[in-house]
Design a protein around this nucleic acid. Structure first.
Lengths: 218, 218
DNA sequence: TAGATTGTTAATCGATTAACAATC
DNA sequence: TAGATTGTTAATCGATTAACAATC
């Protein structure tokens, strides 16, 4: 029995987009159904976890002997992840990384609708990137209130990250996606996700070392 | 007893950079020692996990009643994460995101030394970004061999990701940090880390929804 | 029908948390 | 000395894996 109180594991939300990527690839190559075993091989996971995830998210009901309909899975997962119900967001800090993020068309596919960028630099204020305006930071609070935006993408210099975070929160932002290397503090009432490049690199480096170590052992 | 065979948890490598960020912040504000309880509060973890991580990584030995030396922890963690032993890497695909990554000074702090960028676009080949040359993709294989590079940062368009991955691997690359939204396949002898924006966003969105849901319940 | 595959329950595994003796 | 905090062992918790009855 699945209880609505159960807070779902973070791991599930990390696996779902992986399934989606793999399934889109399969669809592109003309396949129409897939078994948990086949999908498991592609995403390098145990079939059981896939069966459980799909069943939990009530994404699609598979057929014994046949497997799951790929179309069904794709639209089910898109739904589950909220890709069909886009959320408005802003980008704060429109330097190199901020510009790359503003220009990134992938966000729309992930259900994130970037409305505007904010910066202090007069050279960039007023520009239009990927169809979105770059506004002055002084307009931040007013715009957040007016547009009722809940999500902010943080791409400022490291040393302004905390100050701007505080400003965002008092203006009503409830979720911060932190692309700066700064460690920022937020109250429990605000969601925070660090796009932690240092952590990713540490994991990758360690994996590489493990692989090389094992080879040398043989 | 800690066995050298034990493959260390991915979670540890994700927490270590968090500790480091928090500790640098503390040092900047003039503190010189910290207890596991205090650090735990900052990074929002259980003190036990911190004591275990630090003990496991033999990062620093704490003193009862006093705690750990912040300087000692910082240099110990930097060592553990290999920040003092930089690894050479290249960036493949120098579009908006690739340029942002080439310009990103943070990599050096994480022990990643970007040697060059590669692209097919004649308009960008020959440019120098953040002191690094952009070379033609045709030179990729020769350069990887010559410089003995093991790590590649992938920032190409999605539809070339797999092809270029295959090229990188045959040229000798052993670790790929994938910033494209493409699902790429690699053999077991190659380390792969997907910088999975879709997953991050899914986690953040879900957190936000949980927070808002709980508020509405009250 | 026979057999492949689902969905779910039970068993295992690993990671997190709690407890506590050692100690500065 | 008394007591705060470490390092580590034991207990708990949750997630992953295996097993298997149901079923198309």
């Amino acid at each position: 029995m699945i209880d609505s109180e159960t807070s779902v594991s973070v791991a599930l939300f990390q696996r779902m987009p992986e399934y989606l990527k793999a399934l889109r690839g399969m669809r592109a190559s003309g396949v129409s159904t897939v078994s948990s075993a086949t999908l498991a091989k592609v995403v390098k996971l145990n079939p059981s976890v896939i069966k459980k995830d799909l069943s939990y998210a009530s994404v699609e009901t598979g057929k014994p002997r046949i497997g799951y309909s790929i179309d069904g899975l794709i639209s089910g997962i898109e739904d589950f992840l909220g890709y069909n119900d886009p959320k408005d967001a802003i980008i704060v800090g429109v330097g190199k990384l901020g510009q790359a993020l503003m220009g990134y068309k992938g966000f729309a596919e992930y259900g994130l609708n970037i409305l505007a960028g904010f910066d202090v630099n007069p050279a960039i204020i007023g520009k239009v990137i990927n169809g979105k305006n770059v506004l002055p930071l002084t307009a931040l609070s007013a715009e957040i209130g007016k547009m009722k935006i809940k999500i902010a993408v943080l791409a400022t210099p490291q040393d302004h990250a905390q100050q701007i975070t505080d400003d965002l929160i008092s203006a009503g932002i409830r979720a911060i996606w932190n692309f700066t290397p700064a460690h920022i503090a937020v109250p429990d009432t605000v969601a925070l996700k660090n796009e932690n490049m240092a952590a990713s690199l540490a994991v990758l480096s360690n994996q590489l070392q493990e692989i090389l170590r094992k080879e040398n052992e043989l």
